[in-house]
Every structure is written in structure tokens, then in C-alpha cells.
């Protein structure tokens, strides 16, 4: 993506004003996946001067600034396992030092591993104007908010883990899966190759096959829908067999 101008506002208000007043403006998170898009925009709004890179370890939830990089998540040491594991093979360290969690979420990238993790954790997104939106609602909708993502709230859970299947180490996932259990059990599936979605009807008696019957899988260059579904089943079975999800 090309920009005629890039601004670096020093406050959220200023940033929002740019966004509201320029029709062809785009918020720049990490900027890495934006680069791949063949578009031209008048104005790029760089959020890197807004102190949005932080991970706060609260009592019941984590607050993660939108400009926190995937590498920061990987090395945080205390974030839920499914988050930490999910980012480990997103490109190399150099890429993860640039890609931001906010950019991944707002781009709604279907190949994203972190989005599946966030969905499985029941994360909530905090926008500057519109306030709080559940990750699930945001990913599910087709609308793009003309707003600025400030932070992501991740509830603390008792247990979480994730799996993904990649042809090579740094490849996009053929399919990914992430689970968590706290107040309730959540199972998310991504790179189907569509966006990450939650398994809605969850019951301890469900087999991985029954759970995944609810999810739609399709073909792309990385594999067929049938193969994706099968791999997801293998990964989910493995998670269920560990026996930690229902504890």
C-alpha cells in the first residue's frame, strides 16, 4: 500500500481526528501486511507515538496495547499459553518484532494464528469511540469500524492451548485451533481458510468430530477443505485426549 502522507499523531484525539476527517485514510499498525495490499491511500495514520505498546497483568485480565508486537507476546512470560504458542511461528523474529496484535485483529486476517487464540480466550476489544466490542462479534461482522483500537482485554483462564498445522515452519497455517477453559470452555478454529470462528455448541460429551461438524472448511492452495477438517480433528482430539480442557 502506498501513502501520499503518513502522520504520527501524539494523542488518540488527534489520531481520531485524522481518521474522521480523511476519507482515504488508513491506520498503520505493524504495517507488514498492509504492505502486501495493492492500494493507494491519501493518509497513513501511524499509532506508534501513542504509547500503545504494553502488556498489563491485571487481577482478572490482561490489558494489551494495540501496538504490542507479536514478539512481545511471545516473550511476555505470563500471557496465556495459547497466545504465546500461537505467535511462535508467525514468520521470523524480525517480522514478529513489527507485526502488532492490533493490526492482526483489525485486519481480520483469515490466516492469523493470534486471532484464533484471542477468540478462544473471549478477548474484548477496546475502541477509542465505540468502546468495548467482543472479539467474536468484531470478527463475525463484515463492517469495518471507523475507529481506533486501543487495547485488547484478555480474561485470565485456567487453561489454554493451541495447535496449528504448517507445511513449513514459517508458513501460514493450513488450519489452526485454540481452546481455553475458565468460566466456560471455548474452542476456536481459524485458517479454515476463512476467518477464525468459535465452536458454538460445546458439550463434554462431544467428540472432536461432532464439535467440528459445526465448522465450515474450504479449499485453497494449502489444502482441501476435507483435509483441513481432518487435521483440525486430529489436533482437537489430541487436545481433548490431554484431558485438561474439561477440568
Amino acid at each position: 500500500m502506498n501513502f501520499k502522507e503518513i502522520v504520527q499523531p501524539s494523542s488518540l484525539e488527534e489520531a481520531y481526528e485524522f481518521l474522521a476527517n480523511h476519507q482515504k485514510s488508513v491506520i498503520i499498525g505493524g504495517g507488514v501486511f498492509l504492505r502486501l495490499q495493492k492500494r493507494e491511500a491519501d493518509l497513513g495514520i501511524d499509532l506508534s507515538h501513542l504509547s500503545l505498546s504494553y502488556i498489563n497483568n491485571g487481577a482478572r485480565e490482561y490489558h494489551i496495547g494495540a501496538m504490542t508486537t507479536l514478539r512481545d507476546i511471545e516473550t511476555s512470560g505470563f500471557l496465556p499459553k495459547c497466545m504465546v504458542e500461537s505467535v511462535r511461528q508467525t514468520g521470523g523474529v524480525g517480522l514478529r518484532n513489527m507485526v502488532t496484535i492490533g493490526g492482526s485483529v483489525c485486519g481480520k486476517y483469515p490466516f492469523s494464528d493470534i486471532n484464533t487464540a484471542l477468540l478462544s480466550l473471549g478477548a474484548r476489544l477496546i475502541f477509542f469511540k465505540k468502546g468495548e466490542i467482543a472479539m467474536e462479534r468484531f470478527l463475525g461482522g463484515n463492517y469495518m469500524l471507523n475507529d481506533i483500537l486501543i487495547s485488547i482485554v484478555v480474561p485470565k483462564v485456567d487453561y489454554s492451548t493451541c495447535r496449528y498445522f504448517k507445511h513449513t515452519y514459517t508458513d501460514f497455517s493450513l488450519v489452526n485451533i485454540s481452546v481455553s477453559s475458565g468460566e466456560n470452555v471455548r474452542i476456536a478454529v481459524g485458517a479454515r481458510p476463512g476467518r477464525s470462528v468459535l465452536v458454538q455448541d460445546i458439550n463434554t460429551k462431544h467428540t472432536s468430530e461432532e464439535l467440528l461438524d459445526q465448522i465450515e472448511f474450504k479449499d485453497d492452495i494449502r489444502g482441501s477443505g476435507a483435509y483441513r477438517r481432518h487435521i483440525a480433528e486430529v489436533m482437537l482430539s489430541e487436545i481433548l485426549e490431554e484431558g485438561l480442557l474439561w477440568k
Binding site: 503518513i6 504520527q8 504495517g31 507488514v32 501511524d46 524480525g94 518484532n97 513489527m98
Partner: peptide, 13 residues
Amino acid sequence: NKLVNSCSYYSIR
């Protein structure tokens, strides 16, 4: 002190 891919790192940043 952070490893980055300079091909995707905006100079003004």
C-alpha cells in the same frame, strides 16, 4: 536493539 525486516519498516518510524 530489536531485529526487524527493514523492507517493511517505515523510515519515519
